[in-house]
Amino acid sequence: IVDNLNPRFNEQYTWDVFHHGTVLTIGLFDNCHISADSNHSSSPGHMDKPIGKVRIRLSTLETGRVYTHTYPLLVLHPSGVKKMGELHLAIRFTATSLLNVLFTYSRPLLPKMHYAQPLSIVQQEMLRHQAVQLVAQRLGRMEPPVRREVVEFMSDARSHLWSMRRSKANFFRLMQVFSGFIAAGKWFGDVCQWKNPVTTVLVHVLFIMLVFYPDLILPTIFLYMFLIGL
């Protein structure tokens, strides 16, 4: 589809599913072979720019139900996440035999050798890199050819690299997890510094009472958890 900001594909595809953990990934790219000259299409500046991709886990779909949704197409740029558009999809997951589906769910997710001798993270990344190289070489000989950056984008070949955005997101997640402990530490510091004399006096009275009556420690903790909604 050329020179159209609202393309309509109107195409139907059917795939055989052999594993219940299959993830359907649909990616959209701006083809550099059309937008650029054939003499410059192989240069590093002319690449198939990603428009976005959609991932759908087949294990979350009900059998025989048609799902019609609009999925946002997001691409990560140096300036941040940018919405490139939306993709309208209609998906239906069908099973020819319920017995085969139940048998598939009864089998382990991975081969037995993976549980006996699991691969390390380094080995997994090496295998991922080799797989990307092989798939890129094979698809590059097709007509029309699929460029290497397309294979890397679809397979998340650079997901192991360090990212400032991912580091910030992980930092904020950790801060959210430990926010309760941080708030408790600040409250204890305020009690020690007598910022609220009434609270400090009540804490000292409660501490003295628990010292003389240690049997009240657990009931007091449970009462406090009940009052705060835990």
Results as ranks from 00 to 15, higher is better:
Ile1Pro: 10
Asp3Asn: 11
Asn4Ala: 06
Leu5Ile: 05
Leu5Phe: 11
Tyr13Cys: 03
Asp16Met: 09
Phe18His: 15
His20Gly: 03
Thr22Asn: 08
Leu24Val: 02
Asp30Phe: 01
Met47Tyr: 15
Asp48Gln: 05
Lys53Ala: 00
Arg57Val: 02
Ser59Asn: 11
Val66Gly: 00
Tyr67Glu: 13
Leu73Pro: 09
Leu76Glu: 15
His77Ile: 00
Gly80His: 10
His88Lys: 14
Ile91Leu: 14
Ile91Ser: 07
Thr96Ala: 10
Leu99Phe: 05
Leu102Trp: 03
Phe103Trp: 08
Leu110Pro: 00
Pro111Arg: 13
Lys112Asn: 07
Gln117Cys: 01
Gln117Trp: 01
Ile121Asn: 11
Gln124His: 02
Glu125Ile: 02
Ala131Ser: 15
Ala131Arg: 12
Gln133Ile: 04
Gln133Ser: 06
Gln133Met: 09
Val135Leu: 15
Gly140Ile: 00
Ala157Ser: 09
His160Phe: 10
Trp162Glu: 11
Arg165Glu: 08
Asn170Met: 04
Phe172Arg: 06
Leu174Ser: 06
Phe181Cys: 05
Ala183Leu: 12
Ala184Pro: 07
Lys186Met: 12
Phe188Ile: 03
Trp194Glu: 13
Thr199Tyr: 03
Thr200Ser: 14
His204Arg: 04
Val205Gly: 09
Ile208Arg: 15
Met209Trp: 14
Met209Gln: 13
Met209Asn: 14
Val211Gln: 15
Val211Ile: 05
Tyr213Ala: 07
Tyr213Ser: 12
Pro214Tyr: 02
Thr220Gly: 15
